[in-house]
Write a protein that binds this DNA or RNA. Structure first.
Lengths: 120, 120
DNA sequence: GCTCACTACCTTGTAATACCAGGTATAAAT
DNA sequence: ATTTATACCTGGTATTACAAGGTAGTGAGC
Protein backbone atom coordinates (compact mmCIF):
# COMPACT_ATOMS: atom_id res chain seq x y z
CA UNK A 1 0.00 0.00 0.00
CA UNK A 2 1.70 3.16 -1.12
CA UNK A 3 0.98 6.57 -2.46
CA UNK A 4 1.77 5.51 -5.98
CA UNK A 5 -1.05 2.99 -5.94
CA UNK A 6 -3.51 5.60 -4.80
CA UNK A 7 -2.72 7.67 -7.85
CA UNK A 8 -3.97 5.11 -10.32
CA UNK A 9 -6.58 6.62 -12.52
CA UNK A 10 -6.41 9.88 -10.62
CA UNK A 11 -3.35 11.24 -12.30
CA UNK A 12 -5.15 11.06 -15.64
CA UNK A 13 -7.85 13.36 -14.43
CA UNK A 14 -5.45 15.85 -12.92
CA UNK A 15 -3.50 16.06 -16.13
CA UNK A 16 -6.65 16.53 -18.16
CA UNK A 17 -7.61 19.37 -15.84
CA UNK A 18 -4.25 21.08 -16.26
CA UNK A 19 -4.30 20.70 -20.01
CA UNK A 20 -7.81 22.05 -20.21
CA UNK A 21 -6.74 25.30 -18.65
CA UNK A 22 -3.84 25.90 -21.00
CA UNK A 23 -1.84 23.79 -23.40
CA UNK A 24 1.28 22.39 -21.81
CA UNK A 25 4.18 20.16 -22.68
CA UNK A 26 5.24 17.14 -20.72
CA UNK A 27 8.30 18.49 -19.06
CA UNK A 28 6.32 21.47 -17.84
CA UNK A 29 3.58 19.22 -16.56
CA UNK A 30 5.96 17.50 -14.18
CA UNK A 31 6.75 20.85 -12.63
CA UNK A 32 3.13 21.83 -12.24
CA UNK A 33 2.17 18.59 -10.61
CA UNK A 34 5.05 18.91 -8.22
CA UNK A 35 3.82 22.36 -7.25
CA UNK A 36 0.43 20.90 -6.49
CA UNK A 37 2.01 18.60 -3.96
CA UNK A 38 2.47 15.46 -6.03
CA UNK A 39 6.10 14.97 -5.20
CA UNK A 40 8.68 13.84 -7.67
CA UNK A 41 6.95 12.64 -10.73
CA UNK A 42 9.16 10.67 -13.00
CA UNK A 43 8.98 11.29 -16.70
CA UNK A 44 8.53 7.58 -17.03
CA UNK A 45 5.06 8.19 -15.66
CA UNK A 46 4.10 11.26 -17.59
CA UNK A 47 5.17 10.60 -21.14
CA UNK A 48 3.58 7.19 -21.52
CA UNK A 49 0.42 8.60 -19.99
CA UNK A 50 0.30 11.48 -22.47
CA UNK A 51 0.85 9.12 -25.37
CA UNK A 52 -1.93 6.90 -24.14
CA UNK A 53 -4.32 9.81 -23.82
CA UNK A 54 -3.48 10.89 -27.33
CA UNK A 55 -4.15 7.41 -28.64
CA UNK A 56 -7.53 7.56 -26.91
CA UNK A 57 -8.12 10.91 -28.60
CA UNK A 58 -8.48 12.82 -25.37
CA UNK A 59 -5.70 15.20 -26.33
CA UNK A 60 -3.89 16.43 -29.42
CA UNK A 61 -0.33 17.60 -29.69
CA UNK A 62 1.68 20.11 -31.70
CA UNK A 63 5.42 20.56 -31.77
CA UNK A 64 6.88 23.99 -31.14
CA UNK A 65 10.44 25.20 -31.11
CA UNK A 66 12.12 26.18 -27.92
CA UNK A 67 15.10 28.46 -27.32
CA UNK A 68 16.25 26.31 -24.45
CA UNK A 69 16.40 22.82 -25.89
CA UNK A 70 14.70 20.47 -28.29
CA UNK A 71 11.19 20.98 -29.57
CA UNK A 72 8.35 20.84 -27.09
CA UNK A 73 5.24 18.79 -27.63
CA UNK A 74 2.28 20.87 -26.51
CA UNK A 75 -0.92 19.09 -25.64
CA UNK A 76 -4.47 20.40 -25.78
CA UNK A 77 -7.81 18.87 -24.89
CA UNK A 78 -10.20 17.49 -27.48
CA UNK A 79 -13.97 17.63 -26.94
CA UNK A 80 -13.77 13.97 -26.02
CA UNK A 81 -11.11 14.89 -23.48
CA UNK A 82 -13.36 17.50 -21.94
CA UNK A 83 -16.12 14.98 -21.51
CA UNK A 84 -13.68 12.57 -19.99
CA UNK A 85 -12.57 15.24 -17.56
CA UNK A 86 -16.14 15.81 -16.47
CA UNK A 87 -16.67 12.13 -15.97
CA UNK A 88 -13.50 12.00 -13.93
CA UNK A 89 -14.70 14.82 -11.71
CA UNK A 90 -17.96 13.00 -11.08
CA UNK A 91 -16.16 9.81 -10.22
CA UNK A 92 -13.71 11.65 -8.03
CA UNK A 93 -16.48 13.35 -6.08
CA UNK A 94 -18.23 10.04 -5.59
CA UNK A 95 -15.07 8.39 -4.42
CA UNK A 96 -14.29 11.26 -2.10
CA UNK A 97 -17.70 11.10 -0.51
CA UNK A 98 -17.60 7.36 -0.08
CA UNK A 99 -14.18 7.31 1.50
CA UNK A 100 -15.06 10.24 3.73
CA UNK A 101 -18.12 8.40 4.94
CA UNK A 102 -16.19 5.28 5.72
CA UNK A 103 -13.52 7.15 7.63
CA UNK A 104 -15.98 9.23 9.58
CA UNK A 105 -18.34 6.44 10.50
CA UNK A 106 -15.93 3.62 11.02
CA UNK A 107 -12.57 4.94 12.05
CA UNK A 108 -12.80 7.60 14.67
CA UNK A 109 -11.33 10.20 12.42
CA UNK A 110 -11.28 13.89 12.93
CA UNK A 111 -11.69 14.63 9.32
CA UNK A 112 -9.61 16.70 6.98
CA UNK A 113 -8.01 20.08 7.35
CA UNK A 114 -9.39 22.75 9.58
CA UNK A 115 -12.72 21.13 10.44
CA UNK A 116 -13.86 21.14 13.99
CA UNK A 117 -13.24 17.83 15.65
CA UNK A 118 -16.23 15.72 16.48
CA UNK A 119 -15.92 12.72 18.72
CA UNK A 120 -18.10 9.67 18.38
CA UNK B 1 -9.44 5.32 -16.88
CA UNK B 2 -12.15 3.79 -14.78
CA UNK B 3 -13.50 3.75 -11.30
CA UNK B 4 -11.77 0.51 -10.50
CA UNK B 5 -8.39 2.04 -11.16
CA UNK B 6 -9.12 4.88 -8.83
CA UNK B 7 -9.67 2.44 -6.02
CA UNK B 8 -6.16 1.10 -6.05
CA UNK B 9 -4.61 1.47 -2.67
CA UNK B 10 -7.70 3.19 -1.36
CA UNK B 11 -9.77 0.13 -0.80
CA UNK B 12 -7.14 -1.14 1.61
CA UNK B 13 -7.55 1.89 3.82
CA UNK B 14 -11.33 1.72 3.80
CA UNK B 15 -11.27 -1.89 4.82
CA UNK B 16 -8.81 -1.22 7.60
CA UNK B 17 -11.13 1.51 8.86
CA UNK B 18 -14.13 -0.79 8.89
CA UNK B 19 -12.24 -3.57 10.61
CA UNK B 20 -10.93 -1.17 13.24
CA UNK B 21 -14.41 -0.30 14.32
CA UNK B 22 -15.57 -3.88 14.76
CA UNK B 23 -14.34 -7.27 13.62
CA UNK B 24 -15.96 -8.36 10.42
CA UNK B 25 -15.88 -11.26 8.01
CA UNK B 26 -15.32 -10.94 4.31
CA UNK B 27 -18.80 -11.58 3.09
CA UNK B 28 -20.13 -8.96 5.48
CA UNK B 29 -17.50 -6.51 4.31
CA UNK B 30 -18.81 -6.61 0.77
CA UNK B 31 -22.21 -5.53 2.04
CA UNK B 32 -20.84 -2.70 4.12
CA UNK B 33 -18.77 -1.32 1.28
CA UNK B 34 -21.77 -1.45 -0.99
CA UNK B 35 -23.74 0.55 1.54
CA UNK B 36 -21.03 3.16 1.54
CA UNK B 37 -21.53 3.65 -2.16
CA UNK B 38 -18.82 1.38 -3.54
CA UNK B 39 -21.07 -0.48 -5.89
CA UNK B 40 -20.84 -4.17 -6.54
CA UNK B 41 -17.65 -5.44 -5.06
CA UNK B 42 -16.72 -8.84 -6.26
CA UNK B 43 -15.43 -11.32 -3.73
CA UNK B 44 -12.52 -11.79 -6.05
CA UNK B 45 -11.40 -8.39 -4.86
CA UNK B 46 -12.04 -8.71 -1.17
CA UNK B 47 -10.74 -12.12 -0.22
CA UNK B 48 -7.32 -11.82 -1.81
CA UNK B 49 -7.01 -8.39 -0.24
CA UNK B 50 -7.80 -9.71 3.22
CA UNK B 51 -5.32 -12.54 2.81
CA UNK B 52 -2.69 -10.09 1.73
CA UNK B 53 -3.30 -7.85 4.70
CA UNK B 54 -3.04 -10.82 7.00
CA UNK B 55 0.25 -11.83 5.45
CA UNK B 56 1.47 -8.29 6.07
CA UNK B 57 0.33 -8.65 9.69
CA UNK B 58 -2.11 -5.80 9.52
CA UNK B 59 -5.00 -8.02 10.57
CA UNK B 60 -5.58 -11.32 12.34
CA UNK B 61 -8.43 -13.74 11.80
CA UNK B 62 -10.46 -16.19 13.83
CA UNK B 63 -13.01 -18.66 12.58
CA UNK B 64 -16.46 -18.70 14.14
CA UNK B 65 -19.45 -20.86 13.47
CA UNK B 66 -22.48 -19.49 11.76
CA UNK B 67 -26.06 -20.69 11.86
CA UNK B 68 -26.58 -19.65 8.28
CA UNK B 69 -23.74 -21.26 6.40
CA UNK B 70 -20.11 -22.31 6.71
CA UNK B 71 -17.75 -20.83 9.27
CA UNK B 72 -16.98 -17.16 9.06
CA UNK B 73 -13.49 -15.76 9.19
CA UNK B 74 -13.56 -12.69 11.38
CA UNK B 75 -10.79 -10.16 10.99
CA UNK B 76 -9.44 -7.71 13.57
CA UNK B 77 -6.78 -5.04 13.39
CA UNK B 78 -3.30 -5.53 14.77
CA UNK B 79 -1.35 -2.60 16.22
CA UNK B 80 0.57 -2.57 12.97
CA UNK B 81 -2.73 -2.35 11.13
CA UNK B 82 -3.76 0.63 13.21
CA UNK B 83 -0.58 2.44 12.32
CA UNK B 84 -1.12 1.60 8.69
CA UNK B 85 -4.62 3.00 8.89
CA UNK B 86 -3.30 6.26 10.27
CA UNK B 87 -0.72 6.46 7.54
CA UNK B 88 -3.44 5.82 4.99
CA UNK B 89 -5.56 8.63 6.38
CA UNK B 90 -2.63 11.02 6.11
CA UNK B 91 -1.94 10.00 2.54
CA UNK B 92 -5.60 10.22 1.67
CA UNK B 93 -5.89 13.73 3.06
CA UNK B 94 -2.82 14.79 1.13
CA UNK B 95 -4.13 13.30 -2.05
CA UNK B 96 -7.52 14.84 -1.53
CA UNK B 97 -6.04 18.28 -1.03
CA UNK B 98 -3.77 18.01 -4.03
CA UNK B 99 -6.49 16.86 -6.38
CA UNK B 100 -8.89 19.47 -5.07
CA UNK B 101 -6.32 22.16 -5.72
CA UNK B 102 -5.73 21.00 -9.25
CA UNK B 103 -9.42 20.85 -10.05
CA UNK B 104 -10.18 24.21 -8.53
CA UNK B 105 -7.26 26.07 -10.04
CA UNK B 106 -7.04 24.44 -13.41
CA UNK B 107 -10.37 23.13 -14.47
CA UNK B 108 -13.22 25.50 -13.98
CA UNK B 109 -14.85 23.26 -11.50
CA UNK B 110 -17.71 24.05 -9.28
CA UNK B 111 -16.39 21.90 -6.58
CA UNK B 112 -18.09 19.07 -4.77
CA UNK B 113 -21.60 18.74 -3.44
CA UNK B 114 -23.66 21.70 -2.43
CA UNK B 115 -21.12 24.45 -2.98
CA UNK B 116 -22.22 27.63 -4.63
CA UNK B 117 -21.25 27.84 -8.26
CA UNK B 118 -18.60 30.29 -9.31
CA UNK B 119 -18.02 31.08 -12.95
CA UNK B 120 -14.68 32.23 -14.28
C1' DG C 1 35.81 23.12 -32.50
C1' DC C 2 34.84 20.36 -27.98
C1' DT C 3 32.66 19.44 -23.63
C1' DC C 4 29.31 20.07 -20.24
C1' DA C 5 24.80 21.09 -18.29
C1' DC C 6 20.16 21.62 -18.99
C1' DT C 7 16.21 20.79 -21.51
C1' DA C 8 13.01 17.63 -23.68
C1' DC C 9 11.25 13.35 -25.26
C1' DC C 10 10.78 8.25 -25.62
C1' DT C 11 11.04 2.92 -24.65
C1' DT C 12 11.38 -1.37 -22.08
C1' DG C 13 10.48 -3.96 -18.27
C1' DT C 14 8.49 -4.57 -13.48
C1' DA C 15 5.34 -4.44 -9.50
C1' DA C 16 0.97 -3.69 -7.46
C1' DT C 17 -3.74 -4.58 -7.48
C1' DA C 18 -8.89 -4.72 -8.83
C1' DC C 19 -11.61 -8.01 -10.93
C1' DC C 20 -13.50 -12.05 -13.67
C1' DA C 21 -14.59 -16.74 -13.80
C1' DG C 22 -14.70 -20.53 -11.75
C1' DG C 23 -14.41 -23.83 -7.77
C1' DT C 24 -15.49 -25.76 -2.93
C1' DA C 25 -18.14 -26.41 1.20
C1' DT C 26 -21.65 -25.70 5.09
C1' DA C 27 -26.39 -25.06 6.77
C1' DA C 28 -31.27 -24.72 6.59
C1' DA C 29 -35.55 -25.24 3.98
C1' DT C 30 -38.37 -27.55 0.72
C1' DA D 1 -32.16 -35.25 -2.03
C1' DT D 2 -32.24 -31.09 -4.04
C1' DT D 3 -32.12 -26.45 -3.80
C1' DT D 4 -30.88 -21.87 -1.95
C1' DA D 5 -28.21 -18.84 0.51
C1' DT D 6 -24.11 -18.33 2.80
C1' DA D 7 -19.11 -18.21 2.94
C1' DC D 8 -14.53 -18.78 1.34
C1' DC D 9 -10.69 -19.45 -2.03
C1' DT D 10 -7.74 -19.68 -6.48
C1' DG D 11 -6.09 -18.96 -11.05
C1' DG D 12 -5.44 -15.60 -14.73
C1' DT D 13 -5.80 -10.82 -16.92
C1' DA D 14 -5.68 -5.78 -17.53
C1' DT D 15 -4.34 -1.45 -16.02
C1' DT D 16 -1.04 1.69 -14.65
C1' DA D 17 2.82 4.14 -11.92
C1' DC D 18 7.56 4.00 -12.08
C1' DA D 19 12.63 2.92 -12.55
C1' DA D 20 16.32 2.69 -15.68
C1' DG D 21 18.13 3.70 -19.65
C1' DG D 22 18.45 5.90 -24.29
C1' DT D 23 18.38 9.91 -27.81
C1' DA D 24 18.86 14.58 -29.08
C1' DG D 25 18.74 19.79 -29.27
C1' DT D 26 20.54 24.27 -27.22
C1' DG D 27 23.72 27.49 -25.17
C1' DA D 28 27.90 28.56 -22.26
C1' DG D 29 32.73 28.20 -21.28
C1' DC D 30 37.12 26.73 -22.72
Amino acid sequence: MSTTQMLKGILDGCILAIIKNKEVYGYELADKLENYGFHSFSEGTIYPLLLRMQKEELVTSTLKKSTAGPRRKYYSLTPKGEKELEKFIDRWNDLQNNVSNVLQHEADVKYNKGDETHEK
